[in-house]
Simulated scan of single mutants.
Amino acid sequence: MTALENPGLARFNASEDSAADTALREVCASGAWASKILAQRPYAGTEALFAASDTATAELTAEDLAEAMAGHPPIGRPKPGDPTSSREQSGMAGASEDLKAEMLELNLAYQDRFGHVFLICATGRTGEQMRDALRERIGNSPEQEREIVRTELGKINRIRLTRLVEQEEA
């Protein structure tokens, strides 16, 4: 969809840098990522925006990736008052107390092993699917896990960018 066909993308393209930066930081907490997306405006269409996001995500340094992950709460504990976090983690909303307790335990073990939150594109996943992915990934090497995290972050960024450019005018 082109910017002419997408009023949300046209609005994003035309917005002040500070407003666009704020919106982008809600998509991804990495300043380097947001700067790269800002620098390439205007976007002819959503696919161009997604391509820029994918490239920026692929180019994140270890420090940039850590900054991006710091913007994500642990699975099973969405940020209070944050509708994005709650919506994305809705698969845990109806989880049993046992599953929630297991996720807490696994999240802590993962954080001890890798030094950051377990990051997964939770949209559309059940609590059990997220738990199973966490169980599987905790055995990865740090290098393997960093690349999986980068892929998951890219998926999250695309979903959030879609929401950003499809929002009705405020």
Rank of each mutant, 00 (worst) to 15 (best):
E147W: 03
G127I: 02
I75Q: 12
G8I: 08
T22H: 07
L38W: 03
P73L: 03
E136T: 14
N6Y: 10
T123F: 04
P83Q: 03
F118S: 14
S18N: 02
A122C: 01
S35C: 01
R146M: 11
P74T: 09
S85K: 05
M92H: 05
I159T: 08
E145L: 08
S15W: 10
G76E: 09
Q111D: 13
Q167L: 04
E136Y: 13
R163S: 15
M92Y: 06
M69W: 03
E47P: 01
S35M: 04
L4T: 13
E67Y: 08
Q129V: 03
P83C: 02
W33G: 00
A32E: 12
R135S: 01
A68S: 09
G124I: 04
P73D: 01
T84V: 01
Q129L: 08
A51R: 07
E152P: 11
E26T: 12
A51M: 02
L24Y: 09
L38G: 03
R87M: 13
I156D: 00
M130V: 14
P142K: 13
D98A: 12
H116D: 11
K79R: 15
E97L: 13
S86R: 08
F12W: 10
E88T: 02
A29G: 04
A14E: 15
L99C: 08
P142A: 13
A19V: 15
R87I: 03
Y110N: 02
L99R: 03
A58W: 06
T126K: 11
R125S: 05
E5G: 04
E5S: 12
E169L: 10
S90V: 12
R160N: 11
L161G: 00
E169I: 05
S18C: 03
A56H: 07
V27G: 04
F114W: 04
G71S: 02
Y43T: 07
L9I: 09
T162F: 07
E128W: 02
R41P: 06
